[in-house]
Design a binder for these strands. Structure first.
Lengths: 255, 255
DNA sequence: AACTGTGTTCCACGCTGCGGAATAGTCGTC
DNA sequence: GACGACTATTCCGCAGCGTGGAACACAGTT
C-alpha cells in the first residue's frame, strides 16, 4: 500500500478545494468562498469562472452553486456498483417498514460511502448525505464492511485513518475491534450502539456475492435510541435486515 | 446574456476534460484516456494522480474510474432542486404503472437535465443517464420547459444551441416551434413524436409552483412507438401524467 | 531476445496561474 | 446625493508550476 504520489497539481487541487467549499456552503458568493477556503478572492473568482465555463457550477445573480452536470460523474461512479440497482428499492422498503432511515454503503479508500439513502417521514433528519464518507470502525455498515476485509487491508485502513473517538462508546482499541469483527463475521450482523453519534443506533448486514464470497456492500437501518431498543434493536430489526440482504444477494446472483 | 469570461484556467480545463473522458469510458487506463483526449500520457497520468489523491478517482490495478466521492457534488446540486425529493417516488410509480421509462427533467444552461430516472423491466434501455443534458426543442420534457420560459430566454437558448436536427421529425423552424410551445402552454401537455430518436415517443407535463407560477421542471414518460400509440399516446398516458404532476405540485406547495 | 504494449519518472523551458492592488458596481444610511 | 461598506471584477508583473518529450521500467507476445 502507501503508494507514493508524484506531487499533485497545485492548481487542480485548489480548484477542487474551492469546489468542495462551495459544495459545503451549498450556495455562496466569491468572498464567502474566499473566506471559507482561505484564498484570495481573485483566485477564487477565476476558478469559479473556469468551472462555470465548463458547466460544473452555475451562477444565479452573484451566487454560485454546484451544477447538475456533476450528476454525470456520480452516475458513472454508481454504474460500477453492482449493489446499487438491486438494492435501491430494498432500501426504500426498509425505510418504509421500519419508519427509520435505511441506507446502503460500500467501501472506498478505507471509509464507508453511502450510495443511496432513504428515510421515512417520521425518521430523524440525520447528517446522512449521498456520498458522505464515514469511518469504518464506528458505524454499523462500516463494521460490517471492515469485518470482511483481509487483515492486511484492515491494517492499512487503521494505519491511514486510525480509530478516532467519536463518542464515549466508540471502539478505539484494535483488539476490542477485532473481537467484534469476528463476531460480526460469525453472526452476519453488525450493531452501532451510539458509537458515532450519541443517541443514535444502527444495525447492518453485509451483502456478498454468493458465488465468490466477495463483499459488495452493507445494508443498514439507523435511528434514535429512544425508538430503537430492546427486542426491536436486538431481534426485530436484525431479522428484517437479514431477510432484506438475503433477498438482495439472490437478486444479484441472478441479474 | 453572452457573458464574457476571463480566460479559463488551462490546467483545470484539461483536468476536467480528462475526468470527462474517463467518465465516458467508465473505466480506463492512462494510454486509453491519452488517446481519447489527444493529450500526452505524462499529462494524463499526472492529472489522474492528482484526482486520485483528491479522492475523485479510484485506481484498481492500472485502471482508473470515477470515485464515489463525486456523489457529494451531485447531492449538493440535487439539494437545490425542490422537485427532486417530491418527485422521486412519483417517477417510480409512473414507470411501474406504464411499464415504460419515466423521468424528471429541469433546465440548466439552456438544456434539459435528467435528475432522476426509472424504467420498468420491460422498458427499452435508452441512452438516458442521470445528469444527461438534452436539447430543449426535441424532447417532451424539454419542450415543456421551453414553453414556460420568457421570450428573451428562449432567444438566448436558441442563439446558444440552435435547433439541431436529430431526426426527420425534429422541429427546426423557430415559428413552428413557437406554435407548438403556445399549444403546450394552453394544454399543459407536451409530446415528442420521434423528434429526438427514431422509434421513440414521449409525453411530458410541466411542474410549476402553484403560488408563483415558476417552472420547476417537467415530468416525462417515454418508450418505443410500437407500444406508445393511438389512445395510449394521445389520451391514456397524458391523463396519467397530468394527474401525477398535479399531485407533485400539491406536494410541493405543502412541504 | 527483440518488439510492442502498458504505466511511470524525470527535468529544463517558458507559459500561466497567483494574488495584491486597483476598479467597478451595488446596496443602505445618514 | 454623497458617502461608506460591502460586494464582484479586472489588471498585471513575478516566479512557480505545469507541460510534454524522452528515458525508464515493466509485462506479455512473437
Amino acid at each position: 500500500m502507501g503508494d507514493e504520489h508524484t506531487t499533485p497539481m497545485k492548481s487542480v487541487v485548489t480548484a477542487l478545494d474551492i469546489l468542495e467549499t462551495l459544495q459545503e456552503q451549498g450556495t455562496a458568493g466569491v468572498s464567502e468562498i474566499a473566506d471559507a477556503s482561505g484564498r484570495p478572492k481573485s483566485t477564487v473568482h477565476r476558478h469559479l469562472d473556469t468551472f462555470l465555463e465548463c458547466g460544473y457550477v452555475v451562477k444565479e445573480d452573484t451566487e454560485y452553486c454546484i451544477a447538475l452536470k456533476s450528476l454525470r460523474l456520480a452516475s458513472s461512479a454508481l454504474s460500477r456498483q453492482l449493489v446499487y440497482p438491486v438494492t435501491k428499492s430494498v432500501v426504500q422498503e426498509l425505510a418504509a417498514e421500519t419508519g427509520e432511515s435505511a441506507a446502503i454503503a460500500v467501501e472506498e479508500n478505507g471509509r464507508a460511502v453511502y450510495l443511496c439513502y432513504d428515510r421515512a417521514n417520521q425518521a430523524v433528519r440525520t447528517d446522512a448525505r449521498l456520498g458522505i464518507q464515514l469511518c469504518l470502525h464506528c458505524t454499523g455498515a462500516g463494521k460490517a464492511i471492515f469485518a470482511h476485509m483481509s487483515e492486511a487491508e484492515r491494517d492499512a485502513v487503521i494505519e491511514q485513518h486510525g480509530l478516532p473517538k467519536k463518542t464515549d462508546r466508540t471502539i478505539t482499541d484494535r483488539d476490542e475491534l477485532e473481537d467484534e469483527l469476528a463476531e460480526i463475521r460469525e453472526t452476519g450482523l453488525s450493531f452501532d450502539d451510539e458509537e458515532r453519534v450519541d443517541g443514535m443506533r444502527g444495525i447492518a448486514t453485509p451483502i456478498q456475492n454468493r458465488e465468490t464470497g466477495e463483499l459488495l456492500g452493507a445494508l443498514t437501518v439507523a435511528g434514535p435510541t429512544r425508538r430503537i431498543n430492546g427486542e426491536r434493536f436486538r431481534t426485530e430489526l436484525p431479522d428484517l435486515l437479514r431477510r432484506a440482504s438475503k433477498m438482495v444477494e439472490v437478486n444479484i446472483t441472478y441479474s
